[in-house]
Design a protein around this nucleic acid. Structure first.
Length: 660
RNA sequence: GCCCAGAUAGCUCAGUCGGUAGAGCAACGCAUUCGUAAUGCGUAGGUCGUGGGUUCGAUUCCCACUCUGGGCUCCA
């Protein structure tokens, strides 16, 4: 047979032996590439390095240090973990084990309903190292579905996946396991371990090794909470020792900005045991930041043409029957309170009460859009296992607004809402958002298709006109209308939804809302639900992590601390404090009982933006020594000059925050 | 709600193979009065999350509950 030729990504062509594999190609190009290679892309499809190439193939090599390469490493490491588990836990059933961001997991069912404990991780990891050392090959094979069912006869979850594929119910997860076209592919490491998988995989386990198992947890089979609870192990895997170390270091760093840790250290708030789960108390230093956030929010809403309302925390159950909450949202509500004249509930949302305000008298089209705003306290009965610091809590405050408008006003209103939302989020230093457009769930919605399309289009246009990238989440809308959700990431990479803009045709209907139009006829308004912070608590939690507790000067609980070098300077320090307080600064002082170095250290740990030191020189010259957070010490700064500079900095930040 | 782990001083943690506990920091007192990230000495502080069980005796072993952490499911 004559040689084959293949082309490379740079357009060059290589001649290879007729039975050459992708690995041979990598070796022919260079030993460095051979070493780094983990898989290949042939004619646009990812394949194993051991796959034989054909004449005319377009080939690129996937190396370990790329996203695709790490994906392969992680997936292969998941197989190694599964093998280790089946060795250590005879009779364990394995289900699926994909690569995920930064790592992988694998779900198992242990014999007799046994569970993993943290101690098992070390044993499993040690077993994995043995498998890596043994340098077992990953050998691909293909078979019919019937043969696969035979082969995996003692792995009921694998059989279930094959059967689902046969009956064409497969979702993406299944396809990742079995491939397409009625052919099942599998990878064998040893005679004792073979796993159904589309691949590709590294040529042998010796290519792996920079991994760490991280945690065990339960996970429902197929994500169905009525299905069996499996045992999941998460791990991380990288292309080098250094990359693994860097990742682990990054996780440690992220932990330092965890809002729960910082909230305790900075004395911002706490979750007293006695109060119950998911309920927080705000300490003075957290409360002042919250007040500033709320003041800012109120100011922006006042400027934005909103009207402020207040509504109670409790309501008669009849209200929530009208709104549909008892029908659709009862699981999320606190249990009822029986009272002499009816059944009462804590409110999980503010919208029903805002609808009552709209309905309290006849409305004219001239009043629309009517924008009702409230910092409304709501209570939701979140399931115990879902609570998470400030980010998932049971009692919280929404910066909530309901906008009543005509159908024609909807598009303009949504577009200006998006401006408003982004401007507010940016004022708090957020730039990295994820936008999601959730569309109609064809199986669960109410209202006319026409108005759904119109509303969805209005949301889409608003996103497009702002040049924003967004993901469309098909079928993720609320039953009453489509929505735009805005997420930000927390310090450890988890994404949290903050803002939401939702269209609603249902509540105006249920509450029989009407306005009198220019035609003197009665019309039904459209309602927009929207929150910018989303929940003040969640927003604050994300904010703490975003700033790592070092709030910008305009938000800092204490902005300036004045430290007299010795007792003799306390009187002068007091005059400096007075001057700053007169300029509107949040300022305090710490007398000379402790050494100066100690007091500076304390101020730094509290992340105070400015530490002012005053001693003999300053008393004589009317100056201060300025030690700014993250900056250089400057001695001999005139008090007036510092006050002016401080005032300017804060007012600039506030002006910027106001979008001026 | 489900799986796993945990709860010891204000904070971070050690400890008790069952005989009622200890450190560092913080607090308080005394001394020190100091020029940019920890001055020294001393004192006080815990019914070991709550309730039950086993035991002569439980902070330790067992059970239940509450709360917390990591996931799953669900969600702002």
């Amino acid at each position: 047979m004559s040689n084959i030729s293949v082309s490379l990504p740079d357009g060059s062509v290589r001649d290879l032996a007729p039975d050459a594999t992708a690995l041979d190609l990598a070796a022919a190009i260079g030993s460095g590439l051979k070493k780094a290679a983990v898989a290949a892309v042939v004619d646009g499809r990812e394949t194993d390095l051991t796959a034989q190439l054909h004449d005319g193939a377009v080939v690129s090599i996937i190396t370990a240090g790329t996203d695709e390469g790490r994906h392969v490493l992680r997936h292969s490491t998941a197989h190694v973990m599964a093998q280790a588990v089946t060795r250590l836990f005879p009779g364990a059933k394995f289900t699926i084990g994909p690569a995920i961001e930064n790592g992988f997991y694998y779900d198992f069912e242990l014999p007799g309903g046994a569970t993993f404990s943290d101690d098992d991780l070390g044993r499993i990891e040690a077993e994995m190292r043995e498998i890596v050392k043994a340098n077992q090959p990953f050998v691909r094979s293909e078979m019919s579905m019937a043969a696969a069912k035979e082969l995996f006869a003692d792995q009921p979850y694998k059989v279930e996946i094959i059967e689902r594929v046969e009956s064409a119910e497969a979702d993406n997860e299944d396809s990742a396991e079995v491939g397409e076209g009625g052919i099942i592919s599998a990878y064998r490491n040893t005679d004792a371990f073979i796993d159904m998988c589309v691949g590709p995989h590294v040529p042998s386990t010796g290519k792996l090794g920079f991994f760490k198992l991280q945690r065990v947890s339960g996970a429902y089979w197929r994500g169905n909470e009525k299905g069996p609870m499996l045992q999941r192990i998460y791990g991380t895997a990288w292309e080098s020792k250094q990359a693994l170390a860097d990742h682990l270091h990054q996780l440690e760093e992220a932990l330092k900005r965890d809002h729960r840790k910082l909230a305790t250290e900075l004395d911002l708030l706490s979750f007293p045991h006695e109060l119950g789960g998911g309920l927080a108390v705000w300490h003075p230093k957290g409360a002042i930041v919250r007040k500033l956030m709320e003041d800012y929010s109120r100011l922006r809403h006042e400027q934005g043409g909103y009207e402020f309302v207040y509504t109670p925390h409790l309501a008669n159950g009849k209200l929530f029957e009208t709104s549909g909450h008892l029908q659709w949202y009862a699981d999320g509500m606190y249990p009822p309170m029986e009272m002499d004249n009816g059944t009462y509930y804590m409110k999980p949302m503010n919208c029903p009460m805002h609808c009552l305000i709209f309905r309290s008298r006849q409305r004219s089209y001239r009043e629309l859009p009517l924008r009702l705003f409230e910092l409304g306290n709501v209570y939701r009965y979140e399931r115990a296992g879902t609570l998470h610091g400030l980010l998932r809590i049971r009692g919280f405050t929404q910066d909530d607004s309901h906008i009543y408008c005509t159908k024609e006003q909807m598009a303009t209103e949504v577009a200006s809402l998006l401006d408003f939302v982004l401007s507010v989020l940016r004022a708090f230093g957020f730039e990295d958002f994820t936008f999601n457009l959730s569309t109609k769930d064809p199986d669960k919605y109410i209202g006319d298709d026409e108005i759904w399309d119109e509303a969805t289009e209005a949301l889409r246009q608003a996103l497009d006109s702002h040049g924003l990238e967004y993901a469309v989440k098909e079928g993720d809308a609320a039953f009453y209308g489509p929505k735009i959700d805005i997420d930000v990431r927390d310090a450890i990479g988890r994404s949290w939804q903050l803002s939401t803009i939702q269209a609603d045709f249902q509540l105006p209907e249920r509450f029989g809302l009407e306005y009198v139009g220019a035609d003197n006829g009665r019309h039904r308004p459209i309602m927009l639900h929207r929150a910018l912070f989303g929940s003040i608590e969640r927003f604050f939690g994300v904010l703490i992590e975003h700033y790592a507790g070092a709030f910008p000067t305009w938000l800092a609980p204490v902005q300036v601390r004045v430290l007299p070098v010795a007792e003799a300077h306390e009187e002068y320090a007091a005059t400096v404090v007075e001057a700053l307080r007169a300029a509107g600064a949040r300022v305090d002082t710490s007398v000379a009982d402790d050494g100066l170095g100690k007091r500076i250290r304390n101020a730094k740990l509290e992340k105070i933006p400015y530490v002012l030191v005053v001693g003999d020189d300053d008393v004589a010259a009317g100056t201060v020594g300025v030690n700014p957070r993250g900056g250089e010490v400057e001695r001999g700064v005139d008090v007036e000059a510092f006050v002016e500079q401080f005032r300017a900095e804060v007012s600039t930040a506030e002006t910027a925050a106001l979008g001026a």
